[in-house]
Design a protein around this nucleic acid. Structure first.
Lengths: 143, 143
DNA sequence: CCGAGTAAGTTGGGATTTCCAACTCGTCTG
DNA sequence: CAGACGAGTTGGAAATCCCAACTTACTCGG
């Protein structure tokens, strides 16, 4: 019997521990969009430089990003996503789509066009069989 | 030419302004999982009660959740998702999947099974034509 | 050689948020 | 009447955040 005060154990919470701090996900967005250098990331996200240093270190520690020394003396580093970081793409895309439809409202045009010509809206499918994954097609295996 | 100091305008940032504060997305998760009452949400998320009050008010203001009076005298409210809130499901699912694979590592079982029998992994498809949407199939329409 | 510029941070200090435990208020329950 | 419940409030300490200025180590133009 878990004590009454124990919050739910959950991988959403675990994920948010890693990328839920302010600026973290914007850093990931920047890296997805191709920024690599400290100043670029700072300018494009608007994050304070000291906080950014913090986030970059932490994300590196946790294996989301990696930095590469592109010059020693003076030591200069560039940043990039690891596989784990690249796997955040669906998260950022989902967030982007939600922001487009529910925050930006009607004041902005949709931003992506699929190769079929339609304005892009994401639909979640099963990666194994390719079929659309609605709520009814999914069964919870663990609590 | 945009001034050097302007951060990138972006719906990801806009979305994070709404649901990027600490606890906000966990509140949404709880509502998706079916919690409706203040104490339930507080216990299951672990959020401090005063912060929770704040987040609930803000999310209501922004149209993500709504509260319903289920008893006047003493006034008691229950919480639920609006359409905008329900549309956050893909975001939470994507986050959950990422947490499962990259944070929980091998210490936990995957949690969903698709009706085809495979362990569920999400793949993003175009909602219009149903085809898989890889990076190359998408073209940016606006900056 | 001198001054300006670039890059990636550090630093100090104040402003803002968060956290926690305890308290309220009105109403049901035994 | 003595709790207990449900949904918050409150006060004050602790942790974070933000900003502007500074540092270090080069490179480039004149």
């Amino acid at each position: 019997m878990t004590p009454v005060t124990a919050p739910r154990e959950c991988s959403v919470a675990a994920a948010l521990d890693v990328i839920g701090e302010k600026w973290s996900l914007l850093v990931v967005r920047e890296l997805i969009l191709g920024s690599t250098k400290f100043n670029e990331i700072a300018a494009n996200t608007g994050a304070p430089r000291d906080i950014l240093t913090n986030r970059l270190r932490r994300l590196e520690e946790l294996g989301v990003i990696e930095r590469e020394e592109y010059s020693s003396r003076p030591p200069r580093y560039s940043y990039g996503l690891t596989k784990a970081g690249r796997d955040l793409r669906p998260v950022v895309m989902a967030l982007k789509h939600w922001g487009d439809t529910h925050v930006m409202g009607r004041t902005m045009q949709p931003v992506y066009e699929h190769s079929c010509g339609a304005v892009f809206a994401p639909a979640t499918h099963c990666a194994a069989c390719g079929e659309k994954a609605g709520g009814a097609t999914l069964t919870r295996v663990t609590s």
